[in-house]
């Protein structure tokens, strides 16, 4: 890689302390554990995995929206180089401008009495990025236009908007501070398919136009396959595989990734998949299995899988996988 990654994580862990069943007892929930990850600048980086695998937690850790328990995380956009674990308060404000989150539905999160203009302008005002109302209006109009919202839209209240339009408002709000890194957490999950494609195309256009880097969190692998250039797969807080998108979908190496791909229902009524169906469910994160976290459901598990946790290792140029048997399985 010629350029420094915009986000890099080493052994990154986020643990939550839960009150246990018994009095005074506590449990540790390792929502993210030992993650090593580089997000190349300018990439559309997908993060997939089933519910509870730690995707949102990892995204929030990168945004400094929660406390990192252990490990390192850095942000480097070419202008600034921040250590996210030790970032002092005065730098945090600058970081908030550079790293943003796209809300799933701004209407759900915001006052229904705010106009679309005010919703989009709020981050500018909170962060004090503009010095006059004219400047704010100018900036809001500019970004709204890029998100295909017109002046008429800006005067209205969000409840009058459809799902697709609301999502455009939400994107404009995230981008108004001119961030370099954007976390899009399930940004199209609530949208109907006929509208979803429009929002995905908009995100892609904005990326080219504004030179953004996205962390695109989704449980929908087909969407990720179409929009992302890199993908990382999580299972129970661990990263189990990362690769350029084409490679991951053409030659998945981790048994979990394979199972995930084969579980997607095909549009072809006569193609019932290659029957790599998984048994059972994701184990409880408060009581995860020993060794490889996937061994309780893995059809290829052997003894060592139960005791030794596999590390993420290179299996190709940019392809990394955490499985004791990936080489053997790739040959078969």
């Amino acid at each position: 890689m010629t350029e420094k990654p915009i986000i890099s994580a080493r052994d990154l862990s986020v643990h939550f302390t839960l009150r246990g069943g018994a009095l005074f007892s506590t449990q540790t929930l390792k929502a993210v554990e030992g993650v090593n990850l580089d997000i190349p600048k300018g990439s559309f980086f997908g993060l997939v995995g089933e519910s509870g695998s730690g995707k949102t937690t990892l995204g929030r850790a990168f945004l400094k929206a929660l406390k990192i328990t252990r490990g390192e995380a850095r942000f480097n956009d070419g202008e600034v180089d921040y250590d996210l674990v030790t970032l002092p308060k005065d730098k945090l404000r600058d970081y908030r401008k550079r790293a943003q989150l796209i809300f799933q539905d701004p209407y759900a999160a915001l006052s229904p009495r705010m106009t679309v203009r005010d919703i989009i302008a709020e981050p500018l005002e909170v962060m004090g990025l503009t010095s006059s109302r004219e400047e704010t209006d100018e900036r809001v109009r500019e970004i709204a236009d890029k998100c295909r919202l017109n002046l008429e839209h800006l005067r209205r209240f969000p409840h009058a908007f459809s799902g697709g339009q609301r999502q455009r408002i939400s994107i404009a709000r995230a981008l108004v501070s001119n961030p370099r890194f954007v976390v899009a957490d399930e940004s199209v999950a609530a949208l109907d398919v006929s509208i979803q494609a429009d929002i995905l195309n908009l995100l892609k256009d904005l990326q080219k136009e504004l030179g953004l880097t996205y962390l695109f969190i989704s449980h929908d692998l087909s969407v990720v396959a179409h929009i992302c250039d890199h993908v990382a797969v999580m299972y129970l807080g661990r990263l189990v595989e990362t690769a350029p998108t084409r490679e991951l979908f053409a030659a998945p190496r981790h048994p979990y990734t394979k199972a995930l791909l084969s579980a997607i229902p095909s549009l072809d009524p006569d193609n019932h998949g290659d029957a790599q169906k998984l048994e059972g469910e994701i184990p409880s994160p408060t009581n995860p299995p020993s060794g490889c976290k996937f061994h309780t459901r893995c059809p290829y598990a052997i003894d060592i899988c139960k005791s030794v946790e596999p590390e993420l290792a290179h299996s190709g140029m940019e392809h990394e996988v955490a499985c004791h048997r990936w080489e053997e399985l790739a040959e078969a």
Partner: peptide
């Protein structure tokens, strides 16, 4: 037809995602 064209398909990653214009 529009609905089927808008669905991202795993067996054709090069296919453009085509939304149905407008809103419901």
């Amino acid at each position: 037809q529009g609905l089927i064209n808008a669905i991202p398909k795993l067996d054709d990653l090069d296919a453009e995602l085509t939304p149905i214009p407008g809103d419901i």
